[in-house]
Nucleic acid binder design. Structure first.
Lengths: 123, 123
DNA sequence: TCAATAGTTCAACATCTTTTGAACAAGGGA
DNA sequence: TCCCTTGTTCAAAAGATGTTGAACTATTGA
């Protein structure tokens, strides 16, 4: 099952930039980038805010065309729409992720991400 | 004379993205990119909004570290902080400007920019 | 000196955003 | 079946953002 996502043509630059221009969402995107395409449960983002709040930010990311959310049982699996974004805005996502590497919010998260990876979870 | 500008270290990614995530400001940035470093008067942006409104958006751009504004007589000369941004966030500005090329708002402006250039003005 | 030009500042307004808790839905396991 | 887990939806509150017109400053040119 799938939730509503914009097609590539429906993705707009100013919306993508506006949506990425929030520290919480930028942290989520960096976390996803670290996970290199591995689908990720919403639970993983609770470090960045309350359950309700994360739900709100993930909806924003999905509606902007930055992430894809698949429904799987009682959970949702989130991935970055890397190919689509690279296609539409070449180099943009890469530059953003690289630039975000030294963000304080993001650094905090890296440890969590690496720990999760070390545990070999497929969440 | 110079207005207050953030130093390179004070420029934050999420702020830059948030400020670029507004169609009017994105159009201003593209217009400046077209002018390839030539200082540009605020008057040139009146196609994008009222005088007051442009003043507001130019302040946002300056405070985010995206543009530099020099006071010259009764006018202000605005330039993109290309080198500083490339230094801080390599590839970001380039990707944004390239991606903005097919924006409807921006296309409208390109003609104006090219006309201004054709007239050889140094505004 | 006087007036025009280029822009800013201010207060007001409407609108969007973000955050919250309480209540809800729906799948999965005991 | 019952309930635990995972996540959404809703309404409310607080705050930020964008837009406006009127009033202002400051420089320049006649």
């Amino acid at each position: 099952m799938t939730l509503p996502h914009p097609t590539i043509d429906q993705i707009t630059l100013s919306n993508v930039l506006a949506v990425l221009g929030d520290p919480t969402r930028l942290a989520i995107v960096c976390y996803l980038a670290r996970r290199e395409g591995r689908p990720t449960m919403c639970l993983n983002f609770t470090d960045f805010g309350s359950k309700t709040n994360i739900s709100y930010h993930l909806a924003k990311l999905r509606e902007a065309g930055i992430t894809r959310t698949e429904v799987s049982g009682t959970s949702r699996l989130v991935t970055l729409r890397r190919d689509d974004l690279d296609n539409r805005f070449p180099g943009l996502l890469e530059a953003v992720i690289a630039a975000a590497a030294d963000m304080p919010t993001v650094k905090k998260i890296e440890e969590a991400a690496e720990e999760a990876l070390a545990q070999g979870d497929t969440r």
